[in-house]
Design a protein around this nucleic acid. Structure first.
Lengths: 218, 218
DNA sequence: GTATCATTCTATTAATCAATAGAATGATTT
DNA sequence: AAATCATTCTATTGATTAATAGAATGATAC
């Protein structure tokens, strides 16, 4: 006989799979693009064995799928909605946990006191793009850009910014984005470019959230 | 120095708070209405001490708030979005976990082979209400109905159905709802009423989801 | 077939979590 | 101020989880 509690216990398994910082980091990486274990492990500072174990927990919870390609095992998010789930978790945490607010403000604290700009919301960005007032700058590694990016976005990984400055307009606002709300890349890009006189702000979210919202890519 | 990983670890705490079936049951109860510990404990088959501990974990995670009223401590969901978070968790689990699908179909299996009807989706319900084709039936206890309900819904708790049959129309479709997708009340009401010749289906969600979606109450 | 590489499996250990019983606290009633 | 009631705290137990190291597997390359 199945009770409502059995169902809740199963739901709890899924929540528990998300209840570990390393696994959330893996999910965030996977939200950029599918990847093999070793790549995920190095990007999240886990040993390969440990990453493999965590990935299998995510798999048992139905959050990721694995498929073999040669001798590599490629893991992928099993559902776009998992990105939305993480966004909502973030919103709830930011609203209701003082600790969270503290950490986030610290994460984007301007050590060198450059002018901190409020991040651009999705709606603002959509409006700016609509009116052609905004140039999008994707500061993630080429590989991730290649796997999907916002429409018309220019890809200049952070390390290449210096050599590519002439690609960027000085008469339009630049909106930099990266992997998501807690990814530091776009924040660094914003500060670096601002010091050099560009009008630049960062997008409050990232590529995965844009994609999960069903907004146009390319 | 704060790293992205610190933020993810904090997010993981919130997910972990949801990673226990009893705590999800508490959250589901709280989604109906705020309540004191003893009431929550009895409704979820927990000892008072144990329920109190679980509630405090939820509180540390920012998911519930507590306020004293006389000698009782009233717990409440700290955020409407928590209901949405649980809905999304449910959707992800139902889509990606075979085990989940099995449990849910079993939960609503018709032991007595009455015609099983597909549950009414939110959009269908909205359309039916719009056209005045549907009568809403809230089969939750009076207390929960009093704390909030769908617009124009009739409240007949399951136990009172028999004595209140004459209140229900035979010429219009009745849509029964209760606490949420896994709550058995509306399903039982559907079967019982169908056997007596009423046109009746159950709403696929429940009061908390309706409210969290910002739809009109009353 | 042997070597190599990526990944998974298997113990093991330490850390964290869940449930219980009983004592302690805080607010109310007598 | 004593008694009562709802809740929380504390200590204890057993169960689950996380990380590690090393062996085992499965697919390719030589």
């Amino acid at each position: 006989m199945t009770s409502q509690q059995d169902v809740l216990d199963t739901l709890a398994q899924v929540a528990r799979a998300m209840g570990n910082g390393h696994r959330l980091a893996l999910l965030e990486r996977l939200a950029q693009m599918g990847a093999p274990v070793e790549s995920l492990a190095s990007k999240t500072n886990l040993t390969v064995g440990n990453a493999s174990q965590h990935l299998q927990q995510l798999r048992r919870a139905g959050l990721v799928t694995a498929s073999r390609s040669g001798k590599q095992m490629i893991y992928r998010l099993s559902d776009e909605r998992i990105v939305t789930l993480m966004s909502l978790l973030r919103q709830v945490a930011e609203t209701n946990l003082a600790e969270m607010e503290r950490l986030v403000s610290q994460l984007f604290a301007d050590d060198d006191a450059g002018g901190v700009m409020r991040a651009v919301s999705r709606d603002e960005l959509l409006a700016g793009l609509e009116r052609g007032e905004v140039v999008l700058l994707d500061v993630r590694p080429e590989e991730e850009y290649a796997a999907g990016h916002l429409p018309e976005a220019l890809n200049i990984p952070l390390a290449s910014l210096e050599s590519m400055l002439d690609q960027l307009p000085r008469d339009r606002e630049i909106v930099a984005y990266c992997r998501g709300p807690y990814c530091a890349l776009s924040h660094q890009a914003e500060m670096w470019l601002r010091e050099r006189g560009f009008q630049v702000r960062r997008f409050a979210e990232g590529f995965p959230e844009w994609k999960a919202a069903g907004l146009p890519l390319g």
